[in-house]
Computed example of a mutant assay.
Amino acid sequence: MDELLREMEGYAALHHVPIINERGRQAFLQVVQEARPHRVLEIGTAIGYSSLLMAQHGAADIDITTLELSDERIKVAQGYIDRSAYADRIHIMGGDAAENLLKLQMTGQKFDFVFIDAAKGQYVDYFHKIQPMLADKAVILADNVLFRGYVKGDVPTPRRFKTIVKRLREYIELVSQPPYVTEILENGDGLAVTRRLDT
């Protein structure tokens, strides 16, 4: 498995595919190992790297539904997943994430762990759409919430990133309101760990 993951890291570097970076990876794995999730929803498959990390470090009966827009990336991800021990545990849904989240709502499924690593400007929308699908005490992990240091602090935001930064600030505010509590791990590009308090 480690050999497969190293191969994927090489592919991602060569083809400029964003995967969870080395600094963020340890924090990511720590959250997954603490939560030991059974039913995972991932928004943003890319090449399947984080799916395989979650499968390796989650519960023994883990089942992952992962959403990806790009047909090319789905093909690459499926190739890697098929070579792993978790081929029957990871299911890729192709197409627009917002539409697929609405389809998943209709199935009545519940997820105890959600990992968001897709279009940064859509995080608020994704958060609203996953609400009906969260199990009690679900953990929601969102990557890149500090977006190159522009979201927190005094660094001036280039015009082309202003909308993304504004929406990520909205996301952080949203997940910091009761009944949610959020911790931002500043490893990598910022990982928001959101838990629902017992009500």
Rank of each mutant, 00 (worst) to 15 (best):
G48L: 07
E170H: 07
M1P: 13
A35W: 09
I172A: 01
G44F: 08
A27T: 09
T45L: 06
I43H: 11
I92S: 05
T199H: 13
A46S: 15
I184D: 03
V76G: 02
I90Q: 08
M93C: 11
A142V: 07
P179E: 00
A192Y: 01
M54I: 15
S84I: 07
G153C: 08
G153R: 11
L69P: 06
F161P: 00
K166E: 15
L197Q: 13
M1K: 13
F147C: 05
I81H: 13
P179K: 00
G153I: 10
L4V: 12
P179I: 02
V124H: 10
I19N: 06
L41V: 10
L14M: 12
Q131S: 07
H57L: 08
V139H: 07
A60Q: 12
Q26G: 02
H57V: 02
I43T: 04
G44K: 09
E42T: 12
F28E: 01
T66W: 06
A60C: 05
L41D: 08
V31I: 15
A46G: 02
H128M: 01
E186P: 04
R160N: 12
I90L: 04
K129A: 13
L101C: 11
D2A: 14
I172V: 14
G58D: 10
Y126V: 01
L134Y: 03
